[in-house]
Nucleic acid binder design. Structure first.
Lengths: 102, 102
DNA sequence: AAGTTATGTAACTGTCAAGTTACGCTTTCA
DNA sequence: TGAAAGCGTAACTTGACAGTTACATAACTT
């Protein structure tokens, strides 16, 4: 559940939200925060290491995009406990999900 | 998204999993970890403060149980991005969810 | 070629949180 | 009633991490 540790920082959480909208360069991302650019660079590194984002180089800039895999994992983890706050519609969701697992 | 910070610690994550099975006393919980009992006590405090667990006193012991609310919130947050790893069945889920919001 | 832009890394600092031991309080039991 | 059981809090230590400034590198631009 590495997504949890990566997302526990509010800045990184926000970065993920930004990248969910659209991919962005490191600079664009940094411009959304009061934090210095190197600081953001390190956050991006953490997100990369945890597999939450991917970076591809394009000329002198690096374009970051979201990699949903860890989020999907987190979602799967949560699904196990979804019964706790379930109502009928949620039960249906769970059923769908269970069935898809084949 | 306070669940994220609370669950970023692996011990606390495990505690939540334990309490998802069944409610337990502080001592029972602590017995599952190498950490000292006071250490666990502090983790429980964090979980309490973030609303993830509830404690009720029963004689000289405290019985902890899971409060799913923050997990439900986290689930709702994730739902916004579920499209990223979606297939058709997931799209149906989203639709259900959206509709329930009334 | 020289300067500027885009980005990452290095080294340092300060804060916070998780761990420990020692202690205190309340409840049970012999 | 005194001892033990069950928990929590206090005070301290230590390690991790987010933030900063300074520097390095690579790629456009003129």
């Amino acid at each position: 559940m590495n997504a949890l540790t990566a997302l526990s920082d509010p800045t990184r959480l926000r970065i993920v939200e930004l990248l969910a909208e659209d991919e962005r360069t490191a600079g664009e991302i940094a411009s959304h925060f009061p934090t210095s650019r190197p600081g953001i660079s390190r956050h991006l590194r953490v997100l990369r290491e945890q597999g939450l984002v991917q970076a591809r180089g394009e000329g002198r800039r690096r374009i970051y995009s979201l990699d949903p895999e860890p989020l999907a994992q987190l979602d799967a983890w949560l699904a196990r406990y979804r019964g706790f706050w379930a109502n009928r519609l949620d039960a249906l969701e769970t059923e769908i999900r269970r069935r898809r697992r084949h």
